Computed example of a mutant assay.
Amino acid sequence: MEKIKVGILTNTHGLRGEVKVKITSDFWEERFAKNAVLYIDVDGRTKELCVVNARLHKGMLIVKFKDYDDINQVEHWKGNALYIFKEQLHELNEDEAYYHEMMNARVQDIDGNEIGTVVELIETGANLVLRVRGEKREFLIPFVKAFVTMFDKEKKIMQVTMMEGL
């Protein structure tokens, strides 16, 4: 089964088993909702985790998992990825895409010239921003229809309209 990374456990928070998570997924409110099931690979095996609660704090999520009530139970998880399985994803509309589908997509201008590759997705609150790495530099492109005119999920090719200054 294919794994989809939804977060990276960066640190513990307090003494009662809460952890800090860097979000790497779209729909984070759904992924980290109460009773949502996530997975982590630790000590050579996969653990199933049930979310008790999650809240935003200084750009990170603070997450509490069921049956993990002490810092000593979660401290060795630092640096590990939290994930779901592809089968847990819901269908999207035709003009929508999941983050994992956009990562490493080739980016072209409207004439088909290669611009670079999507290396990071940044949530700004207003809209998603793509960090694109080209041969000589990196640049940011807002993921809005004015800039991103087409995305082929199967071929992992994104077409963008380059504005002056980009």
Rank of each mutant, 00 (worst) to 15 (best):
V6M: 01
G7E: 00
I8E: 12
T10L: 12
N11Y: 09
L15C: 14
L15T: 10
L15H: 15
G17T: 01
V19Q: 01
I23R: 07
T24V: 10
W28C: 15
E29A: 14
E30Y: 09
A33I: 05
K34A: 14
V37K: 13
I40M: 07
G44M: 04
T46W: 11
L49W: 08
C50P: 08
N53T: 15
A54G: 03
A54F: 04
H57V: 14
K58M: 12
G59R: 00
F65A: 00
Y68I: 02
D70Q: 09
D70E: 07
I71L: 07
N72M: 10
N72P: 00
Q73E: 10
Q73I: 04
H76L: 04
W77S: 02
G79W: 02
A81K: 10
Y83W: 08
F85M: 05
Q88T: 06
N93E: 15
E96I: 01
E96F: 06
A97S: 14
Y98E: 02
Y98H: 09
H100Y: 14
M102T: 11
D109E: 05
I110R: 14
I115K: 12
G116H: 01
T117V: 11
I122E: 09
E123F: 08
G125K: 04
G125Y: 03
N127V: 04
R131N: 08
R131S: 11
V132K: 03
K136H: 13
R137P: 02
F139G: 05
F139H: 05
I141W: 04
F151S: 00
K156N: 07
I157P: 01
Q159I: 14
V160S: 01
T161F: 10
M162L: 15
M163Y: 15
E164Y: 13
